[in-house]
């Protein structure tokens, strides 16, 4: 203790000496450069223009890149705004009607106005959340395995399978579950079968996004936790996952948004009905995408209106889920 206090002035003087020599060296080099700049005053005319040239060339490139980026951004914005405007302007008036949110389409023909979409909203929410309840744990655990534990051939194989699964077209997922559920097991087409097909589509999205988020967690945090004598599983649960939490939530929501708008497996496994059906194992379950698809084939105005309104409803549900997810992600995420 005493030795350290008595020792500290000496070395700090030493470091001061070192820094002094450092500055003197720096001073020498700066003097050299100023000297070099000062000696050829005759070339003073060319040097600045050369500097000017380079700067101008880069400024042009900078401006060009800026224009291209803005153009690309605006171009990408065009279809987005267009879709939102079209769906919004054509669909909004039915959404203002209370019965849209309370009634089903039971007994309402395409000729008649009225009725609601509550059967399809319920179906979409039930199927979406069931799908998420199955695929989120599987997806997150797979990602944890790949990032934290996976070494060697098995991890490579798993990663490869996830890649393949990412590329599976949704209609193939639907046909696969149909072949399994209906053809092999001889079961009825029910909402749960739809969920199974959607699970196949959602798992790879959750795995990939969670994997990326876990990779972003600095290794130093894991080491800090290990150095405290915390076991690996607890480090993952209490340090790694909370740090990546908001990113994982975002990934899950992207996956959920994808499966909620999915149509192909629904056409195969869960055709549209007009009545409320909330039992996942009790027969066909109507959803918003299949409702859109049903009304799309109609020429009569009431059905066309309902198509736009259900499209807008689907967009709003996905938006709401996103907002909810952001709020959830804010709690327990990285604090600043």
């Amino acid at each position: 203790m005493t030795t350290s206090t008595t020792a500290s002035p000496g070395p700090s003087a030493g470091s001061a000496g070192a820094s002094a020599s450092g500055t003197s060296r720096a001073g020498a080099t700066s003097a050299a450069t100023t000297g070099a700049a000062a000696t050829p005053p005759s070339t003073r005319g060319t040097a600045p223009t050369e500097l000017g040239h380079k700067a101008r060339g880069r400024a042009v490139k900078d401006q060009l890149a800026r224009v291209v980026m803005w153009a690309a951004f605006l171009l990408a914005l065009v279809p987005l705004v267009w879709i939102l405007w079209t769906v919004g302007s054509k669909g909004y008036h039915l959404l203002l009607d209370a019965q849209w949110w309370t009634n089903s389409q039971r007994g309402i023909t395409s000729r008649r106005e009225g009725g609601g979409a509550v059967h399809a909203i319920q179906g979409t929410l039930i199927q979406g959340l069931t799908t998420a309840a199955i695929s989120v744990p599987i997806g997150i655990l797979t990602a944890i395995y790949l990032v934290e534990y996976g070494r060697g051939r098995l991890a490579k194989a798993v990663s490869f399978m996830v890649d393949i699964l990412t590329g599976v077209p949704s209609i193939v997922a639907g046909l696969f579950v149909y072949a399994l559920w209906v053809t092999t097991f001889g079961l009825q087409r029910v909402g749960f079968a739809v969920c199974l097909a959607l699970v196949l589509l959602m798992i790879p999205v959750v795995v990939r996004s969670t994997e990326e988020m876990l990779k972003l967690v600095p290794n130093e945090l894991r080491e800090a936790s290990y150095a405290l004598g915390v076991p690996k599983w607890k480090t993952i649960m209490k340090v790694v996952l909370p740090t990546a939490f908001s990113g994982i939530v975002t990934g899950v929501l992207l996956g959920l948004a994808r499966v909620m708008g999915e149509t192909a497996p629904l056409l195969i496994l869960g055709p549209y009905t007009k009545s409320i059906a909330t039992d996942l194992f009790g027969g066909l379950m109507p959803t918003l995408p299949t409702m859109i698809n049903q009304d799309r084939t109609e020429v009569l105005q009431p059905a066309v209106d309902r198509m736009w309104a259900s499209a807008l409803t689907l967009i709003l549900i996905v938006l709401l889920l996103n907002v909810a997810g952001r709020v959830v992600a804010r709690f327990g995420s990285v604090k600043r």
Partner: peptide
């Protein structure tokens, strides 16, 4: 115990 080169408090 161990202290590392870069300060690494748990950010959450």
């Amino acid at each position: 115990g161990m202290v590392f080169q870069r300060p690494n408090p748990f950010p959450t």
